[in-house]
Design a protein around this nucleic acid. Structure first.
Lengths: 140, 140
DNA sequence: CGTCTGATTTAGAACAATTCTAAACTGTTG
DNA sequence: CAACAGTTTAGAATTGTTCTAAATCAGACG
């Protein structure tokens, strides 16, 4: 057990270094939480709560900083589904989302299942950065 | 001119009544602004600014209330593209959007140009409410 | 190893967008 | 035209996020 924790931290450290971020205690701890399990969707508050539960004390400002730095480094992706908060996704590959408006939860849709056809050319001087699909669902 | 203004207000009044909303001075004025021209994208602040320019005094709270009531009544639709504010769209039909992240502007994509195929079945007990496509663009 | 330096973290203040509250007002109904 | 429920309002409150200035830390260097 202890060994695998150390391995995770080492892996996170390398990951951060590769991204050009100094592997500080806080960043490594958050990276461990973020990337240990599979794909995750979270908000600043939820990550902070999770960190607190795991006995890691980080200020909210650091959680925000880290989330933004990770996003800038391509380790995370922001998902816009709800104007009231930012969601972050540890899955940075091509994929889409279900968004459950009742529970305010996101569910991944694998990148190869949805196909979007007929996207018009963007206005002059603009280029397409990404095509986001959000399938809004609710209790039937 | 005066005649057409009266017509607009009468039309707005009927529209509101049909939606089950009492056609008050403020709601009629905002509806006129919203639906007089073609499709529009706006935020609470931008609508309020526009109202102020047109000499209509409405409190910000009323702008928010109205926007939400209109949305509830199906007269407007909310577009989630940016976690930092709510956008509203006067076009409630099926269509999609370009979102220019530099300028924070929305551009309509007609409903019949984009086709989304392969949406998986939603989880049990859930139904698809809507499929939103946002094409994020930026200066090339 | 201590020391230094710039990067990072922090608590708390500041901010922006939105929502709430309680009182004043207004549209409709009888 | 009185009465009541629905609506509006100013301003306070709340929420989520960003900023600030001071304290702390990671890594380099002697």
């Amino acid at each position: 057990m202890r060994k695998s924790v150390r391995n995770n931290s080492e892996k996170s450290g390398e990951k951060l270094r590769a991204a050009g971020l100094r592997p500080t205690r806080q960043r490594v701890a958050l990276a461990n939480l973020l990337f240990a399990r599979g794909n995750r969707h979270l908000t600043a508050e939820s990550l902070r709560a999770e960190a607190a539960e795991a006995g890691i004390e980080v200020s909210l400002a650091t959680v925000y900083n880290t989330l933004h730095q990770f996003t800038g480094a391509g380790l995370l992706r922001q998902v816009a589904v709800d104007a009231s908060r930012f969601y972050f996704d540890t899955n940075t590959g091509a994929h889409q989302h279900f968004y459950d408006e009742d529970g305010a939860t996101l569910i991944d849709i694998p990148g190869d299942s949805i196909a979007v056809a007929g996207v018009p050319n963007p206005p002059n001087g603009m280029e397409v950065e990404r095509v986001d699909v959000v399938v809004r669902i609710r209790r039937a």
